[in-house]
């Protein structure tokens, strides 16, 4: 039986010889837009302007101190992901609408996508990468694995950072309260009930 969804990508059959024929077309393409040339010419000015616009920033991420100079437009999330290569914190919306970027700033859970990195000067940031102690996972990480609190895993860092904070905040009286106070973390895979179970387990371990 035929599965429509699998043939959806390449509905037609193709033959390899045809590609080869086509590749000669590539040599016909040799365009260079003016922007590239100009960017090269102007590089010097640009670098000065760039440096002038940068702002110093000292912060600690997962216990590691950083002294940086950055473009003030950079959000904490983009600083983590693109410059410090801590890609555990995720970007799902970039507008505070999903919670995938949740990290702790001085212990409080925040959406790092709406926080300009420079405003975190002097702060201690904890990301998912800083939660475990070496090989030893944080109990919340263990509980997420045990209760299968995720599927694709993309919301998971945010969920776990949120959940760790939630337990600290003491918002774990009942499933309903956990759900309400975990509602800033969207999971499109729909792992919510398992997430609640994982949190309950950690809470019970602690009490």
């Amino acid at each position: 039986m035929q599965n429509d969804l699998q043939n959806y990508e390449n509905p037609r059959d193709e033959s390899r010889r045809d590609f080869l024929k086509q590749s000669s077309l590539l040599s016909a393409i040799a365009l260079t837009p003016g922007a590239i040339r100009r960017a090269a010419e102007n590089k010097w000015d640009e670098k000065i302007a760039d440096e002038m616009g940068k702002v110093p920033l000292s912060l600690e991420v997962n216990g590691v101190p950083y002294n940086l100079k950055i473009d003030p437009r950079v959000t904490l999330l983009d600083l983590l992901r693109e410059q410090l290569h801590l890609t555990g914190s995720k970007k799902g919306c970039d507008r505070g609408q999903c919670g995938a970027c949740t990290v702790h700033a001085d212990g409080a859970r925040i959406n790092s996508c709406l926080s300009l990195a420079v405003t975190n000067d002097g702060k201690k940031i904890t990301t998912i990468e800083g939660l475990s102690r070496g090989d030893e996972l944080h109990p919340m990480q263990e509980a997420f694995i045990k209760h299968d609190g995720f599927q694709c895993g993309y919301c998971t860092s945010g969920q776990i950072m949120s959940a760790v904070a939630l337990v600290k905040e003491g918002r774990t009286q009942c499933a309903e309260q956990i759900s309400e106070f975990m509602s800033g973390n969207i999971c499109r895979c729909g792992a919510y009930s398992n997430i609640v179970k994982a949190i309950q387990e950690v809470k019970n371990q602690q009490s």
Partner: peptide, 9 residues
């Protein structure tokens, strides 16, 4: 209003 993370900010 909003979410716990947003209310922290």
């Amino acid at each position: 209003g909003a979410s716990p993370q947003l209310r922290n900010m």
